[in-house]
């Protein structure tokens, strides 16, 4: 089982490598990937340096090209695939059918992973990508329960990667236009959700308001910690009641499911957070490295260590971590 860690820049990449990642995943500094944030990601020179560093230690580097190119931007996306192949990344992570066909045709040796943005939640979908484009791995959306993950693994030759830790999308990835509705900027097309340029924090007598392109996403009293105005994590009035109508701000932590994931043959665990600091990447990578090693060594008697959970909780977004959809308290 591989540990796949996020790198929003060279320092995070080096930290991930030093902390025990098997693979790091990266993106170019533009809309070709789903973490298109200011100050983040790699240009050609820094990716070259990152590749050299990672490969020196036997660590693989993946590149996410997981937004959906529009016809008038098509060449920018195919040029990114070409560049990834030329620089020698170990895999590209794609969501768009057309781009996948391009990569297969022009760079038959390039390893293809299906991004979580491809919204493939069942083996029929994953096998479609396998038969048509020869994908070697699929990243599952964070919506499946544990038995559903197992059902997928059993019915496809494609390696399965699941999210283990980090921010939690409550919507099926690749199927969410909430940000586009409020701001015109979407994960699918622009690689960004609730972009910083649309965010306003406004002090009012009622409390601190967070607005996204003018839409009131939440309002916080002095005793509350104000969260970032992501639409699905706002408080709204529904039928006279004001509450987190879609999702509470929590993050995912599946450490305790590790033996089960290992047993069912999950090929890789993905850590979310290319937008997070090198310190986050280092902390999370070290804990998961230790946990995976222990689970492999002693799967029957794997026990969660309190120190792991303490360290992970320190870097969680929001106050609490959950098992997400893998176990479904809401089901």
């Amino acid at each position: 089982m591989e540990l796949v860690c996020p790198a929003g820049g060279l320092p995070a990449l080096k930290t991930a490598v030093d902390s025990g990642a098997d693979c790091v995943y990266t993106g170019f500094r533009d809309a070709t990937n789903a973490r298109n944030f200011a100050g983040l990601n790699f240009d050609e020179a820094s990716l070259k340096e990152g590749l050299a560093y990672a490969h020196r230690y036997g660590v693989k580097v993946f590149l996410a090209l997981n937004t959906f190119p529009q016809t008038h931007h098509w060449r920018q996306w195919t040029a990114a695939v070409d560049k990834a192949a030329e620089l020698g990344v170990d895999a590209v992570i794609l969501a768009d059918l057309g781009l996948m066909a391009y990569a297969r045709r022009v760079h038959p040796q390039l390893r293809l992973h299906l991004s979580v943005q491809g919204s493939a939640t069942n083996y029929e979908a994953i096998n479609f990508y396998y038969e048509r484009f020869g994908i070697q791995r699929a990243v599952l959306p964070r919506v499946l329960s544990l038995p559903q993950v197992e059902q997928v693994v059993k019915n496809t030759p494609v390696e399965i990667e699941v999210f283990g830790f980090g921010g939690l999308c409550v919507m099926v990835e690749g199927r969410c236009a909430l940000s586009a509705y409020a701001t015109g900027i979407s994960p699918n097309c622009h690689g960004a959700c609730s972009p910083g340029s649309a965010v306003r924090y406004v002090e009012t007598p009622q409390g601190l308001e967070t607005r996204l392109n003018g839409v009131l996403i939440d309002r916080f009293s002095r005793t509350e910690r104000a969260g970032y105005p992501t639409i699905c994590k706002g408080r709204y009035a529904v039928g006279g009641e004001t509450y987190y109508a879609i999702e509470e701000p929590t993050s995912l932590n599946t450490l305790e499911l590790l033996p089960a994931l290992l047993r069912m043959g999950v090929a890789a665990i993905k850590i979310e957070g290319r937008q997070r600091s090198p310190a986050y990447v280092g902390q999370v990578t070290r804990v998961w490295r230790a946990a995976i090693d222990e689970a492999k060594r002693n799967p029957e008697h794997f026990k969660l260590r309190q120190e792991w959970m303490t360290q992970l909780n320190k870097v969680s977004e929001g106050a609490q971590a959950t098992l997400g959809a893998y176990n479904r308290p809401w089901k």
């Binding site: 768009d96 699918n188 097309c189």
Partner: peptide
């Protein structure tokens, strides 16, 4: 929901 955004897809 199949996300057709370009002619190739």
């Amino acid at each position: 929901t199949l996300n057709v955004f370009n002619a190739e897809t």
